[in-house]
Design a protein around this nucleic acid. Structure first.
Lengths: 239, 239
DNA sequence: TAGATTGTTAATCGATTAACAATC
DNA sequence: TAGATTGTTAATCGATTAACAATC
């Protein structure tokens, strides 16, 4: 049964499907699946130079900490075939995962706010490894950023830059009081996805996706879990 | 029916419960619930100075972007009572949420790696607002961090510092090649929770909790979702 | 062939959502 | 009282897990 039949039978509407550019109809993958696919790809890229040609679902599962079932399900979802006894071909996996994740496309981003966090991001070399290019930083005072490997412009020029470079994803690293206003500027210029480091929960309007990275909340959560772990250990000691 | 009866009936084992220190038995809350509770608390702390005394579940739901049902369920889980027509008392919510989140306890953390990201974190003022204190930074070369508002010591002194200050949570912001080694040092000294900025997936051993903040993967995911949104919009245009 | 691994289906699990009785 | 909101239960939804037939 082909995928289209499957979705018809299940009563899905067309909106829930998408053409990923490799001409395979596939189900929209949720965030955790996508993150797993990106992790597989990272592992595979390290495995290939070591001379490996094939992997089994349990190898990859071990590597990123999931069960083999999840790995097989994930690959099945995006129609990557394996061999019943020979596992999966690494070259093929890298190609196919790359296609799904859009590795052939340019991933250009802009940054608003060139303070401490913004500056750290501008010098963050790991972005390049994932195919992400930070094209420019913007700030109220472009001079204060100092010498950077990336140009810093006045924030009033940001919308024009976004439009002329067809940029769809931006990073916000301004103080919380300025965040909402900067977001508006970005979405107004065509930005559709934002990684927000300002300690306010920005809300996406008009189809703009917001990913709030809230360091304080994350650390708070860590403390809670740690405290919980202690309590559980205490209780188990009672046995 | 009291909670203990409930868990007996459901067949839960005692390990799944915990005493949060306020002498109420309560179910272990999952990560997303905890993050929501922390968000409620932030909103409430902004609401109180404005003179508000009560809130309704739909107010709080709107504020953090969830349905009123979720809010009521969350408060019900941690036994915070409301009034059938008068909503929830803000002071009481702040007290109770603070107790669950451990706001009365000190949340001291140490940082390994005082490069660009580490330095940005040392000067990150928002931690204080969430009751988080970054006590010290550690680096192979303490001098390179320059003048900071927080002391920077040689990384070889980190374990001793962690032990003497009874610190349970640490932040890793070293290069990926050093991350695993630093993690070992931390867990060896008693660290039980780690926020990891190094672009490697660290795995928790011996009950140490790891929270990997992987900026590259997150941005990649954002690009995927944005691309997906476009495709969906295109499809809906066909109607 | 025998053994091992995939691919897919069904079962399980948990979280979210909806509904509504209780009640202020 | 009438109206509105809580608190809790049941329904829904989706993701993870387990199982196993297919097959290399």
């Amino acid at each position: 049964m082909c995928y289209l039949d499957f979705i018809m039978q299940k009563g899905y509407i067309l909106m829930q499907c998408c053409d990923t550019g490799n001409n395979k109809m596939q189900k929209c993958l949720n965030k955790s699946t996508i993150l797993r696919l990106a992790r597989y790809l990272r592992v595979l890229k390290k495995l290939k130079p070591l001379g490996f040609v094939k992997v089994f679902s349990n190898n990859l599962g071990d590597a990123i900490g999931v069960t083999p079932s999840v790995v097989r399900k994930d690959f099945s979802m995006i129609s990557i075939p394996g061999n019943k006894r020979g596992g999966y071909n690494i070259d093929n996996l890298i190609t196919e995962l790359g296609a799904v994740l859009g590795k052939n496309q340019s991933h250009d981003v802009v940054l608003a706010g060139c303070g401490r966090i913004g500056s750290a991001l501008m010098e963050y070399k790991e972005f390049a490894k994932d195919g992400i290019r930070l094209l420019a930083g913007f700030d109220l005072d472009p001079a204060r950023a100092g010498a950077k490997s990336i140009p810093v412009y006045d924030i009033k020029d940001m919308p024009e830059f976004i439009r002329s470079h067809n940029i769809t994803v931006g990073i916000i690293a301004v103080p919380d009081t300025a965040a909402a206003q900067v977001l508006e500027k970005m979405t107004g210029a065509g930005i559709q996805g934002v990684l927000n480091f300002a300690p306010v929960e920005l809300k996406g309007s008009g189809g703009c996706l917001i990913l709030n990275v809230n360091l304080g909340l994350e650390i708070e959560n860590l403390f809670y879990q740690v405290k919980l772990g202690d309590k559980q250990a205490d209780l188990s000691d009672l046995n």
